[in-house]
Write a protein that binds this DNA or RNA. Structure first.
Length: 368
DNA sequence: AACGCGGGGTA
DNA sequence: TACCCAGCGTT
């Protein structure tokens, strides 16, 4: 069967030449739905959490994948997914694990509140004796918002709920030539277009299209099944939809850190608050505006009860996070300065920042 | 509605 | 460098 638009929605331009006329409004979504679903059946991605029947996937596997993939690209998420599922194959295993083990399995993945909420939610699920089976049930769990609730309820339970994520936003903004799509606008349009007979496949299809064809910078319109309906394609500048979001400035932060011990056994502190909360790391002291390293280092030593030690500079580490760019001067304190207070580094969940700092002691790779 | 939250890929 | 990524919780 052809996936070309029917006469009802026939656009005037559907060749490789630059289109010049906008497509007709979408009065009947059926042909568009079929075009995308045909494309999906042929070209959809093969992903490790897509096991089981369409609309009847394993809820635990889908749930973990959706949490893991929040603000994380699929190519990277797959690696973490395998590691996490190996560590916690079932929701019971996850619920019974200590938080430190959960964070360790999440190590390096970022946005660690996702892991803390997933852990709490798993305990809620186990205590109740069953997974939620509806959108509203999933939405009530910590860490589950509108996107994840729609994804799990459709993919695992076949509920007709439209997902709205970055891919959906971009695809719909282009098809409908909306430069400033609000969250409410995207959700409403996604609800309109959702295929009522294959909601799970439809949701996966739109996201696959956004991830593999309708990409942010260089969309491959010639192989897009929605080209004939796409107003952004017709405009000749599809990549200009939607308009870029303004982003907060990155704050420059300087700090000193103390590596007491060695690369395998070190003094670690558990970080509190929202920034890397729950993770362990080297004791760190921020250098206040106008302050200097010596002052910060003195405060740090005092806090640790190591006033009289003589730290040696190990090197500099830079690390960029969402809104911060950290430059950390790392000092080493080998020997027995904190005998009895060091812990095995390999068993703690650390951020990339701390792994970089520890690597200063590991020799050759500091030259890379 | 706006902001903060990791870390890395891409142009 | 700027922007983006299978978003969510808080304010």
């Amino acid at each position: 069967m052809s996936a070309e638009p029917t006469a009802n929605t026939e656009p005037t331009a559907n060749t490789a030449s630059l289109p010049s006329t906008a497509p007709a409004p979408i009065t009947d979504p059926a042909p568009l739905r079929r075009a995308l679903l045909d494309w999906f059946d042929e070209s959809g991605r093969d992903l490790p959490w897509r096991v089981g029947p369409e609309g009847g996937r394993d809820p635990y596997r889908v749930w973990v994948a959706e949490i893991l993939l929040q603000q994380t690209q699929v190519v990277r998420g797959r690696l973490y997914y395998e590691r996490f599922l190996t560590a916690f194959p079932t929701v019971q295993a996850l619920a019974e694990a200590p938080q430190g083990a959960v964070l360790k399995a999440w190590e390096g993945c970022g946005y660690y509140a996702r892991a803390r909420n997933l852990h709490r939610a798993a305990q809620t699920v186990v205590a109740s004796g069953e997974f939620p089976t509806t959108y509203d049930g999933w939405l009530a769990l910590p860490g589950v918002g509108p996107y994840t609730a729609a994804a799990v309820s459709s993919l695992a339970y076949g509920e007709a709920r439209a997902v709205s994520d970055g891919n959906v936003r971009r695809v719909l903004a282009r098809v409908l030539a909306e430069r400033q799509p609000t969250d409410a606008w995207v959700q409403a349009r996604a609800d309109d277009l959702l295929d009522p007979l294959r909601p799970a496949a439809w949701n996966e299809a739109v996201m696959d299209l956004g991830a593999t064809v309708c990409t942010p910078k260089a969309p491959e319109c010639p192989r897009c099944p929605l080209r004939g309906w796409c107003a952004a394609y017709a405009s000749g500048e599809p990549a200009s939809y939607p308009a870029p979001k303004r982003r907060a400035a990155v704050q420059e932060v300087r700090a000193v850190a103390l590596l007491v011990g060695d690369a395998e056994h070190a003094l670690l502190e558990q970080r509190a608050g929202t920034l890397l909360g729950g993770l362990y790391g080297l004791p760190l002291e921020e250098i206040s505006a106008g302050g200097d390293q010596a002052g910060a280092l003195a405060r740090l030593q005092a806090r640790l009860g190591l006033d009289h030690a003589r730290p040696e500079p190990l090197g500099e580490v830079t690390h960029t996070m969402t809104h911060r760019r950290l430059q950390v001067s790392v000092y080493g304190l080998p020997g027995t300065a904190a005998v009895g207070r060091t812990v095995p580094v390999a068993q703690a969940a650390l951020s990339r920042l701390d792994h970089k700092a520890l690597a200063l002691l590991r020799g050759p790779q500091r030259l890379l």
